[in-house]
Design a protein around this nucleic acid. Structure first.
Lengths: 194, 194
DNA sequence: GCAGCACGATAACATATGTTATCAAGTTTA
DNA sequence: TAAACTTGATAACATATGTTATCGTGCTGC
């Protein structure tokens, strides 16, 4: 949530660092569950090393919603803010180094921040950035074919394709693993050197 | 943006009412453009009567992104907050009564609001609500078939189906008008009394 | 080192969806 | 009021995508 934005709003780093001592460092293997679908999020999660996905269970199989990497922060926002059960699971994909900041300290941190000049404006800008991100995600489904969405990933977020197992990417794109395989082989024919 | 939330956060109404005198009332016919794709949003829009859609142009045809009705407020958030060109057009579907509140007064209004106790918490809750909404929109594409998405509309937002021309709904669902017609006729066979 | 498992490619077939064209019924406009 | 446009249904055909099954490879745990 808030600390998706360390790069974009460097003035936040001082606040963040102040709360470093309250964070719990964890080294976890791949496929570690950091938050389970149905339980209430108690921690803001920061990724020092590794990678993480969020997914939900749909009639027996996983549907991946989003991927996170080094220096990304995340939470199950609605669950974390409103103390309600999370609609998705957060799980590591690779062995990872994770920091957890408990809810109470996040509340304090936000309280600190609210004395920062232009904090409201900052918050609105963050809101706009995130909303634009999620709107783009679903606009892409209205506008693009799965093949185009895969190509968007290739050009705009190639690290995802490099590091994430293909069946997670398939469910993120909204297609079957078989079809994603077909898309790749079709593209490979067009670009034999890649 | 902010005043999506008049029902949920009634304490906001006093602030809203204070700025009523600065709003410009307009009665407009159907298919009036309130904000054009590519131009910078200068007004927050409130709908007293009628209905509105947002869409963007994709290789010649419209893709509808969202629908709004009586007592909804909206803006092209990223454009409005960050003074950048809007990625979509805002257009009335029916003859409508619209109020426009210029950017400068919205800024004042937010400034007023920021002295409200718990304003930060309020803003975060609003953020969570909107983010959850947009995430659900795109999760629905990963999880559901177009037929299921149509049924979701039927059960959860029937007013959309009642008031909005079908080809707008088709593009919102991400299918062709022909296929939406097929979906409807298939469902009609299962439910001959509807 | 072997047995099992996770991951990915491919084939064959079934189903879903897009495209183009045509028709019909309203609605708007001149 | 007639002509033009908008909206929606349907048919026929092409393409995209899902499902199930099979195979291969590499990794993991014992």
């Amino acid at each position: 949530m808030l600390f998706h934005f360390r790069d974009k709003f460097p003035q936040l780093n001082a606040y963040w660092d102040k709360y470093l001592p309250f964070q719990k460092r964890m080294e976890v293997p791949a496929k570690s569950v950091l938050l389970e679908e149905g339980s209430v999020s108690q921690n803001y999660i920061f990724i020092e090393k590794g990678c993480v996905r969020t997914f939900f269970n749909n009639k027996g199989d996983d549907k991946t919603v989003q991927f996170f990497f080094e220096n990304d922060g995340l939470s199950s926002l609605d669950s974390f803010i409103n103390h309600i059960p999370s609609t998705f699971t957060i799980e590591t994909i690779e062995p990872s180094i994770i920091y957890l900041l408990p809810r109470q300290y996040v509340a304090q941190l936000i309280d600190d921040l609210s004395h920062e000049p232009d904090f409201t404006s900052l918050l609105l800008q963050m809101w706009a950035i995130r909303q634009t991100h999620y709107m783009n995600e679903f606009v892409s489904f209205i506008r693009d074919t799965p093949e185009q969405r895969y190509q968007n990933l290739l050009t705009q977020r190639p690290h995802i394709i490099q590091r994430v197992p293909q069946h997670y990417i398939a469910s993120y794109l909204g297609v079957s693993t078989v079809h994603l395989s077909r898309i790749k082989s079709k593209l490979a024919k067009g670009n034999p050197h890649f």
